[in-house]
């Protein structure tokens, strides 16, 4: 019986000593954390996707508190998160428009044809490094889905050889844009729905030979646009989202069907 009592006493005393030690060390090495940082960390999405340019959500929270990053630093959280962060930081709200990724290529299997057979790792960057482009158009989407592989929200799928973004799922982190070796993906305002689905800067004749829906730089679209949002530079049409009214007149006149609405 006494053996049990002794053991209990020993364990109890050791436990007490360790407990006292821990409390003492805890006070001694206490690091002051700004409670705003913890609060911000809680309102951030917590994906640790790195799209903000910082190592993760903890890092960007610290940067926001230090004033190195703005309240709208998190592209994934967008406006709602920015508003909450502003509330925590006591700063004025900057309206951050929601932006989504868009793949500037409409050259799916039915519009362009295969030029060569690429054999190797199924990854756009690997194929681009080997100088291989499977389709006749050298500018277009290769369709191996490097963008889909990096998307944290599973918003990109490759349909008929071209990557397509589900804009409802897209959080605008921009990781896909960095992954694309052809620089096809850009971030556009969520409300924008008239797009030039091409990035080919070759002359019209060469574009026609490569793809049915490529921009030939005919400038019909620029003549239609009343707000001056459409410009043609280097044989390629471009729409400035800040001027575009989404009227869709350019898309109606586009002879190649390059400009599309409602994508």
């Amino acid at each position: 019986m006494s053996a049990i009592l002794i053991a209990t006493a020993v364990i109890g005393i050791v436990g007490l000593l360790v407990g006292i030690g821990l409390v003492y060390i805890g006070n001694k090495f206490h690091v002051e954390v700004d409670e705003r940082e913890t609060a911000i960390r809680e309102v951030l999405p917590g994906n640790n996707c790195g799209a903000c340019g910082y190592a993760g959500c903890d890092a960007v929270a610290a940067a926001i508190v230090k004033g190195e990053a703005s309240a709208a630093a998190c592209p994934v959280g967008g406006a709602p998160v920015a508003a909450k962060i502003n509330a925590i930081m006591g700063t004025s709200a900057e309206a951050a428009a929601r932006r989504v990724a868009f793949v500037r290529c409409g050259g799916s299997c039915e519009h362009t044809s295969a030029k060569n057979t690429y054999i190797g790792i199924r990854d756009c960057r690997a194929a681009a490094l080997a100088g291989m482009h499977p389709w006749k158009c050298d500018y277009g989407c290769m369709g191996y889905g490097s963008c889909a592989a990096v998307c944290p929200e599973d918003a990109i799928s490759v349909v008929d050889g071209v990557a397509v973004v589900d804009k409802e799922k897209c959080v605008g982190c921009g990781l896909c844009a960095k992954a694309c070796p052809k620089n096809l993906i850009e971030l556009v305002p969520y409300e924008q729905h008239v797009f030039v689905r091409c990035r080919n800067t070759d002359k019209g004749k060469d574009v026609k030979a490569a793809c049915d829906v490529g921009c030939i730089g005919c400038r019909l679209c620029t003549k239609q646009c009343e707000s001056g949002a459409v410009t043609v530079d280097n044989n390629l049409a471009h729409i400035d989202p800040s001027l575009c009214t989404n009227c869709g007149k350019c898309a109606e006149k586009c002879p190649q069907g390059t400009i599309a609405t409602g994508v």
């Binding site: 190797g120 790792i121 990854d123 960057r125 690997a126 080997a130």
Partner: peptide, 13 residues
């Protein structure tokens, strides 16, 4: 396995 190609991609990255 396409080892060399993988290494080329990794080195480029």
């Amino acid at each position: 396995k396409p080892l060399t190609q993988e290494f080329k991609v990794a080195k480029a990255e």
